[in-house]
Design a protein around this nucleic acid. Structure first.
Ligand code: MN
Ligand code: MN
Ligand code: ZN
Ligand code: ZN
Lengths: 143, 143
DNA sequence: CTAACAAATTGGAATGGTTCTAAGTAGCAA
DNA sequence: TTGCTACTTAGAACCATTCCAATTTGTTAG
């Protein structure tokens, strides 16, 4: 047994193992990209960022890995109209504000009680697995 | 002046005129398709339906006319994930329930006071021009 | 009515994000 | 070592939508 103290397994390796999937450099770096700059990048933007560390990664792999991370529940998918799919690292319940001018996406905290009220408008017979709240408009640049 | 009594101008002709646009058979029939079966068809589905009356209409024209109707505020655009854009004839405030099994879209009435509460979660500096509420899940077939 | 002009339609090509495919690579197990 | 499976890769294919250039239609002016 080596004297090296084992690091606690990171969230990614753990989740992948739970799903019977392997931890690969591509998955690790892509996950890192999402965790580091917590915005809402497109697959192309993730591709551009991860190429700094993995110059030979392919765009197909970026799509594959992002899909894997979504399946593992580590990131979420966000879509605005027909624009390219974006990926969101924020797992807490929130709405999205899409600034039309800048194209920026802002996370808006969504209180649990409001989420409940929204879900309660569904007539009997409707069983919602997910609720999405999306705003579009102008936002002041942050102070 | 002809003795024919003039029909009250329909909503479409009126709205088009207001925008300096012409009333064309293509626009009239496409609008009719949306008003008749008040579901959420894709451009292809509209194309299929309108070809019964206008066999020589082109898909490009279907896209053009639908966009025109949206600009005139007569119909609305709805998107689910990356699926083809759908068109909604219901102009009152409502949420959409997307049945994953059947692919059906259901309109869910959205009370004005709830819409207000939802809009009120926006911090100062955010000016929303539109709010969208979307559910995804299973729905019982209507009785 | 005709001529001129602008608006609208058309078929087909181009676009762009995403998915598919087939071939290669890497890690693990017997 | 061999075999097995998962994973990555490059590039082709896909498909909803937009663009383009040519034609048709409608409107207006003479
Ligand atoms: Mn945008
Ligand atoms: Mn669907
Ligand atoms: Zn988010
Ligand atoms: Zn609707």
């Amino acid at each position: 047994m080596p004297s090296v103290i084992m690091n606690p397994p990171d969230a990614l390796a753990q989740r992948l193992a739970d799903s019977g999937l392997r931890s690969t450099p591509q998955r690790e770096f892509i996950y890192g990209v999402l965790m580091k700059k917590r915005d809402h990048p497109t697959a192309d933007e993730v591709y551009a960022r991860v190429r700094a560390d993995l110059p030979s990664i392919s765009l197909a792999t970026v799509y594959n890995c992002l899909e894997t991370l979504v399946q593992c529940g580590l990131i979420r998918v966000v879509n605005f109209e027909r624009g390219p799919t974006r990926y969101c690292p924020n797992l807490s319940p929130h709405a999205h504000f899409h600034d039309e001018q800048s194209g920026t996406i802002h996370d808006i905290d969504l209180p649990a009680d409001l989420l409940e009220k929204v879900a309660s408008i569904l007539p009997p017979g409707f069983d919602a697995k997910s609720v999405e709240v999306t705003f579009r408009g102008k936002s002041q640049p942050a102070a």
